[in-house]
Design a binder for these strands. Structure first.
Length: 256
DNA sequence: ATGGTCGCGCAGCGA
């Protein structure tokens, strides 16, 4: 099974590129983030014509996550089903596809270490950890896929010196990610590669993609038994090239 | 080049 994740930075702006990419790469499951669409505007028919069922959780203008699947799509859960107050932002969607419990996540950016949005980011990650603890088992086939807005360690940024005091690399964010891993999730990419300089996001500005100045913030975190079935993973940086690219590249994972 | 780019939506914010 091929599972992919891609922050498309507006599905309206990106639909032609996403359709072309899906037809070429043929993922069985595709998690999307930052669709920036209402549910009514989600192009489900376009994906249906390519052979995919889909589920979308959006609000328009900002955020928005989806899961597409051609191996079944069941038990869709939108947001945190923990009985607490509803998340005001559309950042989480669960579905079961081909026997794998999949989450498409768009973790809050945080904006700055002293910003309310940073506290929201940390609380959001703790809430995700709580849902995993309360509603999942680490020996299940489960993958949390998406834009985590966290570079797990210094190999995952182009120059750590440029990120001192910034979000995405701060100790509390990395500790929150480590708590997800302590529950039982594995950063599948690091199961295959030790090297730094392998990024999934590059700022549109200042030719950063051309200069290789990026970060690896788009992750697939899988439970150990599912990660053990991993045969290959790559970041498709070709998808960051050409006309009207997203600022993120997709991550593509093959599971036996 | 004293700023560099997108997307949203029509000013300026968010990423």
């Amino acid at each position: 099974m091929r599972i992919a994740t891609w922050n498309v930075n507006s599905l309206k702006a990106r639909l032609p590129r996403v359709e072309e990419w899906v037809a070429t790469v043929q993922p069985d499951v595709l998690c999307l983030q930052e669709t920036k669409l209402t549910d009514a505007a989600f192009p489900g028919l376009s994906f249906q014509s390519l052979g995919y069922e889909s589920a979308h959780h959006g609000q328009g203008q900002w955020n928005g996550v989806a899961v597409l699947s051609r191996v079944g799509l069941e038990d869709v859960v939108v947001g945190f089903d923990d009985g607490e107050e509803e998340d005001p932002e559309a950042r989480l969607l669960w579905a079961t596809c081909g026997g794998v419990r999949v989450a498409s996540v768009y973790v809050p950016n945080g904006r700055a270490l002293d910003h309310d949005h940073y506290r929201y980011k940390l609380a959001w990650l703790e809430r995700l950890a709580g849902v995993l603890r309360d509603r999942s088992e680490p020996d299940a086939a489960l993958a949390v896929c998406g834009d985590f807005n966290i570079a797990p360690d210094d190999r995952d940024v182009y120059d750590p010196a440029d990120f001192v005091g910034a979000t995405h690399v701060s100790e509390p964010e990395r500790a929150a990610l480590a708590r997800l891993e302590a529950w039982g999730l594995v950063d599948v990419f690091r199961r295959h590669y030790d090297a730094g300089g392998l990024f999934s996001w590059w700022d549109y500005r200042a030719g950063n993609f051309h200069k290789g100045k990026g970060m690896r913030i788009d992750l697939i975190l899988a439970t150990a038994p599912l990660a053990a079935r991993s045969t290959a993973i790559l970041i498709d940086r070709n998808a960051r090239k050409g006309k009207q690219p997203s600022d993120h590249a997709p991550v593509v994972w093959d599971v036996a």
